[in-house]
């Protein structure tokens, strides 16, 4: 017996895919077009626009800054967010209900407002280097996502497993690393990827916090399109996507492997 699938459903699914993938195809096409303006379908084939990214020093610098900020902000957010999410879930019965809401509240604040307040409170008077203001801004930006995603992973974690380990002689702190973390691994990976992508694509917060000599890639892209309309933009976008995918793969591999190593 075969299951008949409604042809309308197949059509609809195909449409969704076209909708999702279409823009990507257009960007890829535009990035390799041998024309001096953005166009699709590509006319001629060249990798010139990719070389051009490296030739423009502002792109070179901002790519590195963006990667550094995204990586550091994500790492710091995980270091703060994992224990916070753990505490929120472990002591859920003892803690007031509004507390976990409080931790995800920043998601509701428009990012642009957050960037502006950070600008006023940190950047202007305190003399903190721009790189660190950016880092603080991005950490605050991604922290609620980290807490949210790790909390979701922990909410299905059975804490009696932790108690079993402790009763068998494992210290609570060690138990956290050998028993709790390996079991919320997928949550940590998801949080890392989500935070990294949020940071590396962010415009609103960065807009206020970049300054002389330091900018992020999305801000640089904005600056570039104000003056030029060449396919470099498309090739930068492709590069950004490729970098993000590479980071996702690396994260998946390394965090995946640590968890496997832990079982030995």
């Amino acid at each position: 017996m075969t299951t008949r699938i409604n042809p309308a459903l197949i059509g609809f699914t195909a449409l969704v895919y076209v909708f999702l993938i279409g823009p990507l195809v257009i960007i890829f096409g535009a990035a390799i077009s041998d024309t001096s303006y953005l166009t699709f379908p590509p006319q001629g084939l060249t990798l010139h626009w990719f070389e051009n990214i490296w030739a423009i020093s502002a792109f070179r610098r901002t790519i590195i800054t963006s990667l550094q900020i995204a990586f550091l902000a994500t790492t710091i957010a995980l270091i703060i967010g994992i224990p916070a999410a753990y505490a929120l879930n472990r002591y859920r019965v003892q803690l007031p209900g509004w507390l976990s809401t409080l931790f995800v509240l920043p998601i509701l604040v428009p990012e642009i407002v957050m960037g502006f307040s950070l600008l006023r409170s940190v950047n202007v008077d305190s003399g903190v280097p721009i790189f660190f203001t950016l880092l603080i801004g991005h950490t605050l930006l991604v922290l609620p996502y980290v807490i949210r995603v790790i909390s979701a992973a922990l909410s299905s974690f059975d804490f009696s497993i932790e108690e079993a380990a402790i009763s068998l002689g494992s210290r609570p702190a060690k138990t956290f690393f050998t028993i709790v973390l390996p079991n919320v691994r997928s949550g940590v990976i998801a949080a890392f990827i989500l935070a990294f992508i949020t940071s590396i694509n962010d415009v609103s917060v960065s807009l206020f916090l970049t300054g002389p000599g330091i900018s992020t890639l999305p801000i640089q892209i904005l600056a570039h399109v104000e003056q030029f309309f060449d396919p470099t933009i498309a090739s930068v976008s492709v590069l950004l996507m490729v970098l993000t995918v590479i980071v996702m793969i690396i994260v998946e591999r390394t965090l995946g492997l640590t968890a496997v190593a832990n079982t030995k």
């Binding site: 497993i161 079993a164 028993i179």
Partner: peptide, 8 residues
């Protein structure tokens, strides 16, 4: 609920 370590 047994509380076995799922990853071991």
């Amino acid at each position: 609920n047994y509380a076995l370590f799922p990853h071991l």
